[in-house]
Nucleic acid binder design. Structure first.
Lengths: 180, 180
DNA sequence: GTCTTGGCTGAACATGCGTTCAGCCGCCCC
DNA sequence: GGGGCGGCTGAACGCATGTTCAGCCAAGAC
């Protein structure tokens, strides 16, 4: 997961993984059936690790729910940067598991938005599809653009106190916009 | 550009490009000095094509400026989907040119945000760094996530009338938020 | 008509890839 | 203590990649 996340999935060879793990390439094939199998296993592990952060989040007031979601992602970033780096890559390399996860997040996000609109917590004239995607992008783009962020913005934008600032910025943007 | 945008830069071989163009792989090497040179040339062409859409946008009222930016990107998506597909890929594969472009967009976006804050058009307590990145993500994420969007959401989300909806959704989110 | 030039190619090269497979070797059962 | 077994490996395979290079061949100069 760490190697795939750092170097990209397609660009990381089985031999690299084997060398890093201290086993032979043949063993990886033996266990996982090939590189695709390995990717599928890593997908599953990453999705499980990420999904665990999203337990018991129901029944919160809308604004708090939003903050909770962002905070949970920030927590995963802090505690399992490898998982986040991997999922960010997997999303843009369109791993089967990542596509599944995306489908899940979009459809459940969509349902939640519908619910929030009905409850009057979100503007009724909001575009349901794009509102869902905006939520997704604001949370996930930092993961997928991480190499770019760290390479050019410079600082460790996705660590420490900066993550709190990121959560705050997202919550404030979604609550009240940026312009006045 | 089209092949790199569709299949990814690292995953598209020189031979594929040669076959599609009707020349020999050796000619590409002869002209561009190798695959890296070809990527650099495509980078430059894409950045130029994309940059041309951003001419003469100064001196607009803030809210209109925002809309103009989004509309210009939407226009490029409509007229040069190849450029957008390529740049979306280049951003996540961190091509040298894409990193340069990202640096440029972030620093100029940052300056603009400062200006808008001073002018009172943006909340003074906004986080300058993250506000810049939010703008960037909302505009660029659809480009980089395009394969995912089309694969899973289904429809041609980045075509026709959907692009207008995308622009509207972004403008409304940045102006007034989503929740109330 | 001949010569020169330069765009362009086919064939080959070294390298690295994912994968296969015969077989080693330490562990557990009898 | 001997025998079977399964985790694990080294070496090889076929293939695709980026790159090199000697040389073809049409076009322009004289």
């Amino acid at each position: 997961m760490r190697l795939f996340g750092d170097g990209g999935i397609g660009a990381t060879s089985l031999r690299e993984v084997a060398r890093d793990t201290g086993v032979s390439p043949a063993l990886i094939v033996h266990h996982f059936g090939g590189k695709d199998g390995l990717v599928a296993a890593v997908d599953e592990a990453a999705i499980r690790a990420f999904g665990e952060a999203y337990r018991d989040v129901e029944d919160q007031p809308p604004a708090e729910l939003l903050r909770r979601r962002a905070e949970q992602t920030a927590t995963v970033m802090r505690e399992r940067p490898d998982v986040c780096a991997y999922l960010g890559r997997a999303m843009v390399e369109v791993t089967p598991g990542a596509a599944r996860l995306f489908g899940l997040m979009v459809s459940s996000g969509r349902e939640e938005i519908e619910r929030l609109i009905e409850a009057g917590a979100i503007r009724a004239d909001a575009d349901r599809v794009w509102a869902t995607l905006q939520h997704f992008f604001l949370v996930w783009a930092p993961l997928s653009f991480r190499p770019l962020l760290e390479g050019d913005v410079g600082g460790p934008l996705l660590e420490g106190r900066n993550l709190d600032r990121w959560v705050d910025a997202n919550v404030e943007l979604l609550r009240g916009g940026l312009y006045r």
